[in-house]
Every structure is written in C-alpha cells, then in structure tokens.
C-alpha cells in the first residue's frame, strides 16, 4: 500500500514537472504583463490582448499554413518513396540491390553538420531559396524510413505477394493496394516521426527562408522572440509560443505516438536496426 502510494507520488510529481511550465506559459499568455512572473496560474485580469498583438504583428496564420503544407508534403513523400524503395529492397531483385542497401545504411550515419552547408549552397544554385521547394526537397526521402519499411516488408509472407503476381497484379498495385492496408502501423510510425521532425525543425528554415510570408511557424516564432518585434514584452512572446504549442498538443502524436512506440512491433524492428 505504502509502496504504491509512493509510486503515485513520484509519478504525480513528475507530471507536475512536465506539465507546469506549459500551464504557466498558457496562463502567462493571458495575464497582463506585470503579473506574468507570478508563480500562481490564476488571474482575474485575463484577456486575449497578447494574442491580438501577436496576430497583428506577425503573419502567424500564414506561417501555420506554410508549416502544415511543408510538413504534410514531406511526410507524404517520405512515406511513399520510403515504402517504394523499402519494397524494392525487400521483395524485388535487381542488380546493385546489395550496394544500394549498404549505401542507405551509410547515409544514416552522415551527420547534418557535413551536408548542411553544401545543401544550402545547392539551394542557392538551384535558385530555390525562399520557396517551399527549398523546405521540402532536401527532406523528401529518408534513409531511416526506407530501412523501417524494408524490415517490415520482409516480415510479410511471400506467398501473399506471389499470389498477387500470379493474378497479374503490377508491382505498383501490389504495393499500394495489397501491402499498404497491411502496414498501417508502420506507415503511421514513419509518418508521425517525419511530421514531427519536419514541423519542429528551425535550423534549416532559418537558413533558406528569408521571406516572411514563407516562414514556418517555429521559425517565425523564434524570430519574433529574439528579434526586436516583441519589443521585449513577455506577454506576446508567451502568446506566440502558446499558439505554437496549441497545435502540437492537438497533434495525434501526443496520444497515439507513445502508444505506438510502446506496442507496435514496427518500432522494435527499427530499433534493432539503429543499434
């Protein structure tokens, strides 16, 4: 009994540590400037003043659309191309398959530090800085997703695919019609991981996007907070970040993702790979 009470106590303390800062931030964004640093979350002077200020100063709605568009395009592309290459590596025979697989594994070990600058220069040379293309193209495919898909496809029974082939199905049809419905959990895992990573990235957008109307939401908020636009006022800063979080916590990731990581074998498989 005492033991389980202790457990609950620690778990609850942990929950406070993880959740309080967010609550404080949300409360702060509603409070007048002078009350923000107060530890107490309640205020009788709550207003949306800070939000109004943010909305008039920066195009955060547009930034949300940008982020959404970029993250969704990237995620879709990563899933589609990742599964295609993964399928080819797992189920098709062609020359150079082994070499390609090794190259993809090698790609996973290259840190961003090395490719960051040449990639930026490539964007400059292609003349696509300050466009959605520069945000989407460099992350259109990922070695990680290919490996995850390959591992999963290897676990599917070969008889299933053979049967479809004998029925005269094209490989494209086999992949998208037959295999996709069987790989929901893997697709969701890859999609969520990709979406999260793309959505949250700031370094790359900071490098390639200068045009305000094309900035992603996290980038715009960063610039709003460290650039002079908030005029050193805390309230608008917190309001801007609250808007950024409001999106994140409605993200299916918060609820679904830990569960998936926890339960789905898809993750255990790729875990083994990254080891």
């Amino acid at each position: 009994m005492i033991k389980s009470m202790m457990k609950m106590f620690f778990l609850f303390a942990g929950a406070v540590v993880f959740a309080y800062p967010f609550l404080w931030m949300i409360a702060g964004s509603l409070k007048p400037e002078l009350e923000i640093t107060n530890l107490w979350l309640w205020t009788s002077n709550a207003s949306f003043h800070n939000f109004r200020q943010v909305l008039t100063k920066i195009p955060i709605g547009r930034a949300f659309v940008n982020s959404m568009f970029v993250s969704l395009s990237t995620t879709m592309s990563v899933v589609v191309f990742g599964s295609m290459v993964g399928y080819a590596l797992a189920r098709l025979n062609f020359h150079g398959k082994k070499i390609l697989y090794t190259l993809i594994l090698f790609t996973m070990m290259i840190p961003f530090q090395i490719t960051m600058i040449p990639q930026y220069i490539l964007m400059v040379k292609l003349g696509i800085t300050d466009s959605y293309l520069s945000l989407i193209i460099p992350t259109m495919m990922s070695a990680f997703s290919i490996i995850v898909f390959r591992q999963f496809f290897l676990s599917l029974p070969q008889a299933l695919i053979d049967a479809a082939r004998i029925d005269g199905c094209s490989e494209v049809r086999i992949l998208f019609k037959l295999i996709y419905p069987l790989s929901r959990s893997t697709i969701i895992t890859v999609a969520l991981l990709t979406f999260m990573a793309t959505w949250n990235d700031v370094l790359w957008p900071l490098m390639v996007i200068r045009e305000r109307s094309l900035m992603t939401m996290p980038q715009l908020v960063t610039i709003f907070v460290i650039g002079g636009e908030a005029e050193a006022q805390l309230g608008p800063q917190l309001a801007a970040t609250t808007l950024l979080v409001a999106r994140a916590s409605s993200h299916p990731g918060v609820r679904v993702f830990p569960k998936i990581l926890h339960r789905q074998h898809g993750f255990k498989r790729h875990k083994r790979i990254t080891e």
């Binding site: 879709m76 899933v79 589609v80 998208f176 019609k177 996709y180 929901r184 697709i187 969701i188 299916p252």
Partner: peptide, 16 residues
C-alpha cells in the same frame, strides 16, 4: 484510422 490520404494508387499521383 483513415488518415493517410493515399489509400489507393490512383489518388496519390493526383495529389502529387
């Protein structure tokens, strides 16, 4: 769980 918009091979090229 219909949350990926490309369940069939036909809609995907369109979306692309």
């Amino acid at each position: 769980m219909r949350f990926l918009p490309f369940e069939s091979s036909r809609t995907f090229p369109l979306l692309l």
